[in-house]
Design a protein around this nucleic acid. Sequence first.
DNA 1: GCTTGCTTCTACAGCGACTAGAGGTGGTAG
DNA 2: CTACCACCTCTAGTCGCTGTAGAAGCAAGC
Lengths: 138, 138
Amino acid sequence: MKPVMIGQLARETSTKVTTIRFYESIGLLRSAPRTASGRRTYDASDIERLHFIRNGRRLGFSVDEIRSLMGLAQNPDQDCGAASAIAAQHLKDVEERLAQLAVLRDELAMLSQSCTKARMADCRIMKAIGKGHPQADQ
Amino acid sequence: MKPVMIGQLARETSTKVTTIRFYESIGLLRSAPRTASGRRTYDASDIERLHFIRNGRRLGFSVDEIRSLMGLAQNPDQDCGAASAIAAQHLKDVEERLAQLAVLRDELAMLSQSCTKARMADCRIMKAIGKGHPQADQ
DNA sequence: GCTTGCTTCTACAGCGACTAGAGGTGGTAG
DNA sequence: CTACCACCTCTAGTCGCTGTAGAAGCAAGC
C-alpha cells in the first residue's frame, strides 16, 4: 500500500533503476510523484504497469507496440481485436526472423564444415565469404 | 581495370553510397584515393574487399569480426584456424539466438491462440503480458 | 554531531550499423 | 547557359537501453 522508491521497484520487477528512469523519460511510465527531497515514489499500479512493460519487452514487442497495447487498455469496454492484431503481427514477424535465421544457420554450418585447416590463402571459409567475384590477385 | 567512382561501386556491390563512405570512416575500407576534384576512386581490389564485407554482414558477422577476418588474411601463410574459430563461434551464437527465438515464437503462438475476442478488460493476451502480479483495480 | 556508505538525483555520452537530410560543388548533355 | 545528376562534408537520428560523473539525501554506528 505504501509507496516505494525506485530501488524497490527495480528489485520487484527485475529492472535496472536507470531503465525505469529511461521509461519515464520516454513516457512509458508516468512522471512519478516525488518526495520532499525529490525522490520518485511508486505505488501498486506502477508496479503492475512496469511488469506489463517488461513482459512485453521480453516477448519482443517494441516500445511503440507496448505503448499501443497500454493505450488500448484505457478503453476496457472496447473489444480486443486491435490488441490481438498487434500480437498476431508480432508473431508473424518473429516467425519470419526465425526462418531467415534458420537459412543463415544452414549457410554458416556449411561454411564451417567446409574448412580444411588450410593456409589462410587457400581457406574455403574466406573464399566463401569473399564470393561475388572470383579472386583476382593484386 | 580503370578505377570507378563511388556510385559505380555501390551498384556493383548492392551497397548504398552512404554505407560505403561509412565503411571508410570506420576504417573497414581504406581511404580511397581522390580525383583532382575530390571524388573517391576505387579499383578491383576495393570491389573485392567490399564484396567480402557485404557478404560477411549478410552472414551476420559483426564489423569487428569482419575486421579480424580481413586482418588474418594479411598473413596468407598462416593456417586458418583462427578464421574458422570465428566462424564456428558465430555459428554457435546464431544457433543460440535461433533457439531463443523458437521459445519466443511458441510463447507468442500460445498467446495469440488464447484470444477469445473479449472486451479489453477481459483480454487474455493483455492478462498474459501483464502477468507477474494479479490485477488489482485502482 | 560526525563519518561511513548506500541510494538517489540530473545530465549527458556511448553502443552497433547504418540511414537520412541539409547545403554545397563538379562535370556534362542538350 | 542552364539543368541535372553524382558527388562532397557534416550532423543528427534510429532503437533500447547502459554507463558515467558529480552532487545530494538518508540511516546507522560511534
